[in-house]
Amino acid sequence: MIEHSIPATQAVVTLDVALPGIVWGWIITMNMWAKSIGTGVLFVGFYLLKKYHSDEKIQAIKMPLVMISIIFIHIFLLFTVLDLHQMFRFWHIFFYPHWTSAITVGAWIVTILVGVLFIMAGAKYFNRDSIYDSFFPLAVILAIPVTLYTAGIMAESTARELWQMPTEMVQMTLSATLVGSATLLLIGNNSFSDEAKRDLAIVMGLSAFVAFLLYMGEYIFGSMKAEEVGAVLQAVKEGGAYSSMFWVGQTLAYLVPAFLVFLSVTNKSYGTMPLASVSALAGLWLVKHVWLIIPQLLPMS
């Protein structure tokens, strides 16, 4: 904007009310992070159970898998409700649903998913594997919109130019496969075969690599297309807390896992996978947090 870029026309806001600050903070970061784990283990676990259907050690993760999904989906739901300023009115979503809102659609689908997950857990508890197996595809199908609906909310946030729908949709999917494979690598570290670990490592490494490329694409080229995106990205380009958090997050979530996966697969040794998994899990939280916060630093008026 020429109005504030040259001295002759410099324009300075000299009186305005206080800016609202951060509206969606770390609670929403927890929401997105936990949801990625809760749905990610379903996606990657489904693949693993199908491919290694005769491997007893893989089949033994059926109960842990569904329990991890239930726990993290409930952490996600807990933080969703905690973030509401009127949390005891949460039931309004079910009694006054507004279907153009991604929030409403997501809330309903995740409720159905939770029901399906409890059926699967019950089936496994009573050794009714056939019921577990028949409900698993439904859980995976429901997990897709549950993973993506947050991208829908970001897309409906018209004010935040940084959050574009196709990119966010892909990022949400990659987040789920990244931490889904990381979680399964952790729980199967001592029992899975090298072949299964290799499969999980490749999913994690590729997810990390592609997600990193997408962020770098936005970082480098975003400001060339949209002025608002450029202004938002200044928060991570100018230095400061969010800049550090952004690069630490990118390193932990994507670069470290991708590098360790590359070394592991080429050397056929998977001893570093727990480290890569923990790095991915911790880094994703930082990445999500920075991307959530920085558009909110820009004045809207």
């Binding site: 600050g21 608002e228 820009l298």
Partner: peptide, 30 residues
Amino acid sequence: EINLNPLASVRKEGHQLFNNITHLKFIGGH
């Protein structure tokens, strides 16, 4: 642009005319 586009002007924190309010610390009841 100056009136209607927030990116057309600079906000210098702490340099307002009658107050030094910059950002609200809390939003609502959180």
